[in-house]
Amino acid sequence: MSKDGSAHFFTTKLDAMINWGRKNSLWPLPFGTSCCGIEMMATFAADFDISRFGAEAMRFSPRQADLLIVAGIINLKMAPVLRTVYEQMSEPKWVISMGACASSGGIFNVYSVLQGIDTMIPVDVYVPGCPPSPEGVMHALLRLQEMVQKGETHSQRRLKAEGKEYALTAKA
């Protein structure tokens, strides 16, 4: 504290600080396969700008992204690819399952469709809709941000259990 009463530092918890940084710089990996991919593109475009929330840097490489937005149908042919991409991402990583097809197979309960990506990878936020409106996707992102701040996501819980909370490059 200086002589005139203004503060030059503030106290907080370390994990609150780190989680604040993480939540405001989510870098999405748009895993868009079908119709939800178009609504995801609309969310990233100028009308429903997602870069307001810090998620502008779309990185298509799993090594460089931390938020996997699965938008669209995941097939039994695509499922191993999804699993590989998820495993290649480094911790902490988050998954938004966008749309009915990714969350549960949607209207397609057929021989070739994976009935929900949560059978293969842990999901943090599910967005209902077929396709969800861009407002829905933004709501999901904001909800995910709340979860990241509080440390409630699967990835953060896993890291905490392993004792590697502040690890920035932990292996999956």
């Binding site: 396969t33 097939n75 695509m78 397609f108 469709v113």
Partner: peptide
């Protein structure tokens, strides 16, 4: 084939009205 959703098979298992979706 990574987004194959079997619509042709569904066409044989859904009524014409249900298939619009």
């Amino acid at each position: 084939g990574y987004t194959h959703r079997a619509k042709e098979k569904l066409g044989e298992n859904r009524t014409y009205h249900q298939f619009v979706v």
